[in-house]
């Protein structure tokens, strides 16, 4: 087996260009290895690449762990980070790994789509910034090229004043989301809704956003309408974790509660 241990980004992207499989926290890749689904013989460990762990302002390095996000991230992202796995998982797993794995249930993704984050990717040839809706294309499918590495997440310069994350699962710790959601609202009412686990990629509930953004003081009937619109815009499926019907119902209820939290 061939294992690279770079400390610089240049050496890391070079290894990826040579065909090495990137390994960050290992919380997804090693499960596949342990279950004999994958057996990467050429791997580049990213844990000691300092540039990937850098976090300055709105640029969060791909190697930033949930543990760090939990204690210093923007509100809804910190709330999401706190629900990821267990302390052991949060010490290892990274925001970059969440994005690259692109699981519909990725806990960080509803926030990233709600604030229109961009994914910074780099190859030995150079870098590019990819809007989230270009990056995520299907269940665990992204437009990341084979020779590219996700190096950072770019959040917008200013984030909405009010943000809330929520997740539905069978217990409150150590659980994969049945439904995940982030609602943000600015002081002038602009509202965004990021949804997870209710479609092949994370989604935005655009029509619900537009409706509720135009309402300064939502009434009971506005909230009910918002809930229904979010449910309608979700694209859930039935799988081993839940049913389409339950997810559709739960995501509407959850989005409404998070909006109410933003309005308080």
């Amino acid at each position: 087996m061939h294992f690279h241990h770079p400390t610089t980004l240049a050496d890391a992207t070079q290894a990826v260009a040579e065909g090495a499989t990137p390994l960050a926290g290992g919380t997804d890749l090693m499960v596949e290895v342990n279950f004999r689904h994958r057996r990467p013989e050429h791997v580049v460990g990213l844990r000691k690449v300092e540039e990937l762990g850098a976090w300055e302002g709105n640029r969060i390095g791909a190697g930033v762990t949930w543990r760090r996000l939990e204690h210093g991230g923007p509100q809804a992202l910190a709330e999401a980070a706190r629900t990821v796995g267990s302390p052991q998982i949060r010490n290892a797993g990274t925001i970059g790994g969440n994005v690259v794995t692109a699981s519909p249930a990725g806990d960080g993704l509803p926030f990233l789509v709600a604030v229109d984050a961009k994914v910074e990717v780099m190859s030995a040839e150079g870098g590019r910034l990819v809007p989230w809706d270009v990056f995520f294309v299907g269940v665990k499918k992204t437009t990341l090229a084979a020779d590219e590495l996700v190096t950072a997440i770019h959040l917008p310069e200013s984030l909405p004043e009010r943000q809330a994350f929520g997740k539905v699962g069978v217990r409150s710790a150590m659980v994969i989301a049945t439904v995940g959601c982030v609602v943000t609202r600015t002081d002038d009412g602009k509202t965004t809704v990021g949804l997870g686990s209710v479609g092949p990629t994370p989604l935005r509930a655009s029509r619900a956003e537009e409706m509720i953004s135009s309402v300064t003081r939502p009434t009971e009937s506005d909230l009910a309408e918002f809930q229904k619109m979010v449910s309608d815009e979700a694209r859930p499926i039935t799988d081993h974790r839940s049913t389409e019907e339950y997810r559709r119902h739960a995501v509407g209820v959850l989005a409404r509660r998070l909006l109410e939290r933003c309005l308080r």
Partner: peptide, 30 residues
């Protein structure tokens, strides 16, 4: 469990607790 669910393999890696089943052995150099 071999998937980071159960914590029975917990160790301290560079000062942080992690599941050793999710650490690739080749990655612990230094």
């Amino acid at each position: 469990c071999e998937q980071g669910e159960c914590g029975s393999c917990s160790v301290v890696l560079d000062g942080e607790i992690v599941c050793s089943c999710l650490v690739m052995a080749a990655d612990v150099g230094d």
